[in-house]
Write a protein that binds this DNA or RNA. Structure first.
Length: 437
DNA sequence: AATGGACCTGGGTCA
DNA sequence: AGCAACAGGTCCATA
């Protein structure tokens, strides 16, 4: 279990507001923490008017960064409510959570009656998988993979969550052939429509929408395919009702929970018997909720980075179950028992919204693909010329689907050129961000 | 065993 | 301003 260091937070982060300078004792795990050290961000105006209820998770930045963990596609239950601040639901609790300079602060702003306050800390620690030390793993992975070592400093604290199995399964049942913003809405409608509402306990600072627990299987059993279609689920409506029925026949939530104890391949095989669940969705559910830390959900992004860095022979091949297994094996061979965690950091670095954060890697490729052969000649001129071409000063705004579409059309030539640029850029020194992002 | 198409919907791109 | 292609896949029907 991670433990917070005893050192006070930086003076510059201390809030000067009188209401926050009272000596509340903020419990952190079994240890009280002097709240005089509660930083500005926690007590800032506009949200909190006092320090009551806030706790520290005890996670330095290399262990947990919210921006790399909550909105990056593991869970669709969090809403960004401010700069590095989120509100979401963990089980029966509504949680407000904020990134601090070198820790994370949280408090419960709503809960079901049966959710005991005494268990709050344990629930948070479990959800954030705090028994697994990410920083140690990162050191190991960085030693065994140059590419990982290069991109990781830009994506610190990308931690795997340990979510509820039922909730995770249905979230990712919605994810097929879909995009994140829409999945978020679908999950939200599922919860608000059929989940139990969680009463707010601190309504003084919160004026947002109501929060709901994820519906239980019994609650979901009352939902028809027509209901779901009306709620915008499209063809996935049938997957949801079908999986609900089958799960209930198998033993419901309790059956799903037993998969945590068994081997990952058994869990994946079991999940794949559910309608709408294929290798990718099963791997997501298992990695994000069933303690299957070695599993790697192979989607188009992961396949792309895998062929680029580990399995060049697979370039251009279709993402079949057999290929999925090959990529999975390659990740385990390289990253070991927590390959799924390593994959998570690599995956984030491939996302469009984060592309370009690492100088000379994914951004270079993106721009190269967008410009095609025009750039290829520059590549031959060496890293310096290449850096000019790809706009290392950030002036080039070429991102998104355009590049992807062109990649498909350009086919092999662009791919070859892209790896060439990457090779060149790997030789160029990069300057990772320092302590601050 | 592998490949190709269909499938709902909507936010972001491009002409 | 509209539109088409696409999105963090899965299922089913074919050779």
């Amino acid at each position: 279990m991670l433990r917070s260091t005893a050192r006070p937070l930086l003076n510059s982060t201390i809030n000067a507001r009188p209401s926050c300078r009272e000596y509340h004792l903020i419990k952190h795990g079994s240890r009280p923490v002097r709240p005089g050290s509660l930083p500005n961000r926690v007590c800032s105006a506009g949200m909190a008017t006092d320090c009551a209820g806030w706790h520290l998770l005890g996670t330095p930045r290399e262990e947990l960064r919210l921006e790399h963990t909550l909105p990056t596609g593991q869970s669709f239950r969090w809403r960004e409510t401010g700069d590095d601040e989120y509100i979401g639901v963990i089980g029966q609790r509504v949680v407000q959570i904020r990134q601090l300079e070198d820790d994370v602060a949280w408090r419960i702003i709503g809960r079901a009656p049966q959710a005991a306050e005494a268990e709050d800390t344990a629930v948070l620690a479990d959800y954030f998988n705090l028994s697994t030390p990410l920083a140690d793993l990162v050191r190991t992975w960085s030693a065994s993979c140059d590419h990982f070592a290069r991109i990781q400093p830009y994506f610190q604290g990308a931690r795997m969550l340990r979510q509820d199995p039922t909730e995770t399964l249905f979230q990712f049942l919605c994810s097929s052939n879909n995009h994140i913003s829409r999945i978020h809405g679908m999950v939200e409608r599922l919860c608000s429509g059929w989940g139990t509402r969680l009463p707010l306990t601190r309504s003084d600072e919160y004026g947002g929408p109501a929060h709901h627990a994820f519906p239980t299987l019994d609650q979901l059993a009352a939902v028809s395919e027509a209901d779901l279609r009306a709620a915008g689920f499209g063809y996935r409506a049938r997957f949801v009702t079908g999986s609900v029925a089958r799960l209930r026949a198998l033993g419901g939530e309790a059956w799903l929970a037993t998969l945590r104890a068994g081997p990952p391949d058994v869990a994946v095989a079991a999940l794949c018997t559910l309608p709408g669940v294929g290798p990718k969705v099963a791997a997501c559910a298992a990695l994000f909720s069933l303690d299957a830390h070695a599993l790697v959900p192979v989607d188009v992004h992961v396949l792309a980075l895998a062929t680029r860095h580990y399995l060049p022979a697979l370039r251009g091949k279709a993402l079949t179950p057999a290929l999925h297994a090959q990529v999975q094996a390659a990740f385990v061979a390289r990253f070991g028992a927590h390959a799924g965690w390593a994959h998570n950091t690599l995956f984030i670095s491939e996302l469009a919204r984060y592309r370009g954060r690492v100088p000379g890697t994914t951004r270079a490729e993106e721009v190269l693909l967008a410009r095609g052969s025009e750039v290829a000649e520059e590549v031959d001129a060496g890293p310096d010329a290449c850096a000019r071409v790809v706009g290392m000063d950030g002036s080039d705004a070429s991102t998104g689907k355009g590049g992807r579409a062109r990649r498909k059309r350009k086919g092999g030539a662009a791919s070859v050129a892209s790896s060439l640029v990457e090779e060149q850029m790997e030789l160029a020194p990069t300057t990772p961000p320092q302590a601050a992002a």
